Amino acid sequence: MLKITNEVMKRLKKISSPIKRARYVHKEVNKKLSALFQDPVVQKHISCRKGCSACCHTQVSVSDDEAALLAKLVQNGLKIDLKKLKDQSRVSKSASLWYSLPFERRACVFLDENKECSVYNDRPAVCRTNHVIGDPQNCSTQDGEVRSVQLLNTFEADMAIMAGFGSCKENGALPNMLLDLLSKSSDDKLNETLSPQRSLSEVFKEM
């Protein structure tokens, strides 16, 4: 298994762009998962379906490469709820505080009105390996309680994810990592998604 991690890390050292690094890791994770899903038994027992967004209300960790990729999507015009992102960033390092937030305020800022991921092709690596076996009702944290769920064994994909995290300078909770990059950004396109007259820094001061 460590061979996978070493091979991915070796390749990542040759890639200078954080966005390209993130997408390379995602590609490797997808490759490992694709092979796993060739098994009809696996296909039969996975209960995750499109529109099932229970895990999109839980804490998610990203690498700084992945945060850069997501920030770039926002800079390119993808609209998100920045107030919600900031609220989440205040509690994302504590499980008890996170689950004290109202259910809808815990929804990922990339979850759209149809309960689908608006950045599905660029979603974090850890989101890609969340495949539940069993009753999906246990995935819900709407009442603030976290229940035990059985996940598909994705060891090979996990090794690729480990390489991605190990190759970065910083990893952390998605809200914190993304907010940090957005608050530092001076990209004109990002400012336009907020207001044509006000800068990003002005908006963050008001939150």
Score class of each variant (00 low, 15 high):
V146W: 10
T5K: 08
S201M: 12
Q88I: 04
V132M: 10
P18A: 02
D64G: 04
S140M: 03
C52R: 05
L151E: 12
L190R: 00
A125Y: 01
Q43W: 07
M9Q: 11
K32D: 09
R105H: 11
M207D: 11
D158C: 07
V60W: 08
N30G: 12
A54P: 11
Q38W: 14
L36G: 15
K79F: 11
S100A: 15
C168I: 05
Y99R: 09
E66H: 01
Y24P: 13
S17F: 06
S167W: 12
S183K: 10
R128E: 05
P175I: 03
P196M: 05
M159Q: 04
Q38K: 14
L182G: 02
I15V: 13
D180G: 15
F37K: 07
L69A: 03
P136L: 04
K115V: 12
V203D: 09
H26C: 06
S185P: 00
L190Y: 08
R90T: 06
N138G: 14
K205D: 07
C127K: 07
W98I: 03
E145F: 13
S34L: 14
Y24I: 12
L33R: 04
I4T: 03
D187W: 09
P136Y: 00
R23E: 09
S47E: 03
E66Y: 01
N176S: 05
G166Q: 08
L12K: 13
V8S: 12
H57K: 07
A68V: 02
D188V: 05
Q43F: 09
L69D: 04
L174A: 06
A163K: 01
K189N: 06
S89C: 03
K10F: 09
M1G: 10
N191L: 08
L69H: 06
E206N: 11
N130R: 13
A71N: 08
R123E: 12
A35P: 05
M207C: 14
S201G: 09
L190G: 00
E156D: 11
I46G: 00
V29G: 03
S199F: 01
Y120A: 10
A54K: 02
V41F: 08
S186G: 13
N153M: 06
D158A: 07
H131S: 05
A68T: 07
D158I: 01
E170Q: 07
Q150I: 13
V62C: 01
Q38E: 15
Y24H: 10
F165Q: 05
Q38L: 11
V109Y: 08
N121Y: 11
N176M: 00
L85W: 12
I161L: 01
F155D: 00
S183M: 04
D187L: 08
S53R: 04
D187S: 14
C56F: 02
S167I: 05
S17L: 05
L2N: 09
I4H: 06
Q59R: 00
E156R: 04
S167E: 05
L33C: 01
S148W: 04
M162G: 15
G134A: 09
I19Y: 09
V25W: 02
E156G: 00
E28G: 04
R105E: 15
K3M: 15
H45L: 14
L33D: 00
D65R: 12
R11C: 15
Q88H: 07
L2D: 04
